[in-house]
Computed example of a mutant assay.
Amino acid sequence: MSARRLPFTVIGGFLGAGKTTLLNRWLREAKGLRMAVLVNDFGALNIDADLIAATHGDTTALTNGCVCCQIGDDLGRALVEVIEAKTPFDAVVIEASGVSDPWRIAQIGMAAPELSLEGVIVLVDASVAARQSTDPLLADTLARQLKSADLVVLNKADIASADALAAAKAWVEASAPGTPCIETTEAAVPLALLSGLPQSALAPHACGPDCDHDHDHDHGSPDHGAIFQTWSAQPGAMIPAATLRAWLREMPPGVLRLKGLLRTGHGAGGDEWSEVQYAGRHGSLRKAAPPSGLASAGVVAIGLQGQLPEKMLKEFFAA
């Protein structure tokens, strides 16, 4: 069986788009999740004071078990320290600087076999995006950030005029056609969307083996229940790995995030299990150890409220 790789997510976006707001939100929501956040500049992050347990040099330990580390000039070294930490982490989040290409940072992480890229999320300030995109000094940088995104977050939608919001949407679609795009206020993106949460944290709750109804959780924020919708199921049947891979390549529109642990074959030593992942535009399937204890197969999908294709999800996992 392949050893579990540490999932990592890259957050990109221009200066002022809301990356710091998103990171602080995720740190607040990370109850029980050990997350390592790598940033370029501690001063810009402004971690909420009541979360800080201790600060040692370039590392700040938080009261919830998470840590924030300043990258400095060597992202590779910072990632090695996270990978080799005595107490293992559940997920890594890297904040790209406001003018950098998040895909280049993702490639550095992908070079480490111990890491698994969950996705690249790029934030855009919807109130000024149209104006910035026509600035000859910024246009190339902003377009490059968008092209690397698995998910684009049009943030500050509440302060953008209707014309500015429409222009921002048109620019995103022209620069990154087909990339999922959501509108938010104060970076209200749930941690479960692109965070590398362990399967136990995403598993369906209070369901029997044939559960296939949706769970509209708020993910710890009053904003999330109105924006995002979650569907989960515990498929009882074996789903061949080849069938799953083909389905991932043709994922129904409206699924922003999907994760599961499923029976995908029969071998000489018993059932074969796989972890299925889908984020933004990309899906993957990796061999995994069978669930322990009373746990069973489970899959969770997240999408925008009213846009999650529940019928198609139910039909596929029930077939």
Rank of each mutant, 00 (worst) to 15 (best):
H205V: 10
N64E: 04
A295R: 11
P136N: 14
A166M: 11
F317Y: 06
L165C: 01
A297M: 06
E315F: 00
G298W: 02
L244R: 05
F42D: 09
K311C: 02
A44R: 15
G306Q: 07
A203S: 15
L15V: 12
A168P: 00
P291G: 04
V37I: 06
E315A: 15
G283D: 12
G220L: 03
L202A: 12
D73F: 07
R4K: 14
E95Q: 13
Q70D: 06
G236E: 08
G298H: 10
L151K: 09
A188E: 07
P309V: 00
L193P: 04
A111Y: 08
A129P: 02
A187K: 09
D218T: 03
A36D: 03
V152A: 06
N64W: 02
A126Q: 03
L146Y: 10
F14H: 07
G270W: 10
D50Q: 11
V82T: 07
P198F: 05
I71N: 09
C181I: 10
Q229R: 15
A166D: 14
A44Y: 11
L285K: 07
A297K: 03
A36T: 07
G12M: 13
D125E: 10
D163S: 07
T87D: 11
G269A: 13
E95W: 05
A30W: 04
A157S: 14
H266L: 15
V128S: 11
R5K: 15
